[in-house]
Computed example of a mutant assay.
Amino acid sequence: MSIAIRTAFWVVTFGGLGLALFKVVKPDDELLKKFDESSKHTDTRKFSHDTIAILKQATDQSSELKRLSKRDAQRLEKIQKAHKAREEVNVSNENEDYFAGAFKIKSESIEDLLSQVPTLEINILPSHFDNIKREVNELQKYVVTSSFFLKEFNMRKYLGIVQNLQTKCYELEDRYAPRKKFGFTRKKLPKSHCEKQNSLDENDGAGKTDSNKWDEKLFGFDNKENVLLMLENNELYQRDVTLHNLKNCTIGLKGVMGTLHLTNLDNCIILSGPVTSSVFVEKCTHCKIVTACQQLRMHTSHKCDIYLHVTSKGIVEDCTEIRTAPYNLYYQDLEKHFNMSSLDKNVNNWNSLDDFNWLAPDVPSPNWSILDATQRISNWNDWWFRVPS
């Protein structure tokens, strides 16, 4: 057999063997070394060595391509995520920019309404102030409903502006158009008790519905005795709530209210979340009232304990034996409701009331005092479910 034929034979034989070995195991340098030692023909050994090396290189290139493809896919995915994140940031910025512009227009409109107050006639002012309050409440709702894209710092800033508008509105109303029901006039009272009561009723009822009558348009509770009453935030949010003609009742108000009116309550416990604007208390006796608000107005009430958070000074008139303590109510969503109400938790004038029946600035009013710490209720958890005896 000629050398050429033998060479071809060995090339085919060892080439096939090398391919088979490559399929079973990936050859490395140690395997090639052993394979070289087992070969008796130099040319054949070299050819087989080159063949397996080429196959190995091809496999390595395939692995490298796969590795590069995987890396490119990961890089592409990272780029896509970054692009999506930038889009979300841009959308958020666009929302904030739009909100800032709309808020500015609305707040400037309210400022314009407030600036008109000194120029208007007295008979127009009540409806004008009602319109301003509606606009302010709508502006506050606009801020709260935009909280999902507003940064916390910006949200607090906008709520602060709303609160300033509310304060300015109530200050102007007290100055130019005080409500007759809570006007706190300083008229001398007649000597007769009957005449005194008639005088108060006439003064309180002037221009308004009789406080002893329930108007169907009101929202709240009327004419209840010896019961537990409860309302949640989905029912209360920014509404004007009225509690009227209640006796021996516990009323839980877990939410944010626009205003709160308490009229003709006897021996009741009122556990109230934050009130955006004012709490009005009239003709209440032997009550425990726990509330947070911007303003407190208390009229013809006696022997009531008020656990209070008020950001402006509270006002009392024709009241006796009123005792105050700091607001200490707790329920699950209270912190959230405080943020929604825009009340400043760092400002509380619970121990600074103005008594319109006491004009001596250097002598404390005898009609209200600070409740001694040893007599305060420190935890209201059990009181939500307790009917006063």
Rank of each mutant, 00 (worst) to 15 (best):
H299S: 14
K303V: 13
G314R: 01
T285E: 15
M340I: 03
T311C: 13
C293E: 07
S272Q: 05
D266G: 05
N328V: 00
L334G: 03
N264P: 03
S301K: 08
A292S: 15
M257C: 09
E335D: 14
L271D: 01
N348F: 07
C319A: 08
H337S: 04
Q295W: 11
Y330V: 05
H302P: 02
V316E: 03
D305T: 12
V310Y: 05
D318S: 13
I315T: 12
L271I: 06
T276N: 10
L308Q: 09
L262M: 12
N348K: 11
T320K: 11
Y330L: 02
H302K: 15
S341C: 08
Q295C: 08
T311M: 13
V256L: 07
S341A: 13
Y307Q: 02
K345F: 04
L271Y: 05
L343S: 06
R297C: 12
G255K: 00
V347Q: 13
V281F: 07
L308N: 13
S278R: 12
L262F: 06
I269G: 01
S352P: 04
I289H: 00
K345Q: 14
V290F: 03
K303M: 09
L262A: 08
H299F: 15
N267A: 10
V290E: 04
C268V: 04
G314W: 03
N339K: 12
A325G: 06
Y330I: 02
I270T: 01
I289C: 00
N351P: 03
V290M: 02
C284L: 06
S277F: 11
S352V: 10
V275G: 04
N339T: 12
C287V: 01
P274M: 04
D333N: 13
D266Y: 14
V290W: 00
I306D: 02
N264I: 02
L271Q: 00
V310S: 11
G273R: 04
R297H: 15
H309W: 07
I322S: 03
S301I: 08
F280H: 15
L271T: 01
C293R: 05
A292V: 05
L334W: 05
V316F: 06
G258R: 08
S277M: 10
T263I: 15
H337D: 10
F338D: 09
W350H: 07
K313T: 12
S272I: 02
Y307V: 02
H337K: 05
L296H: 03
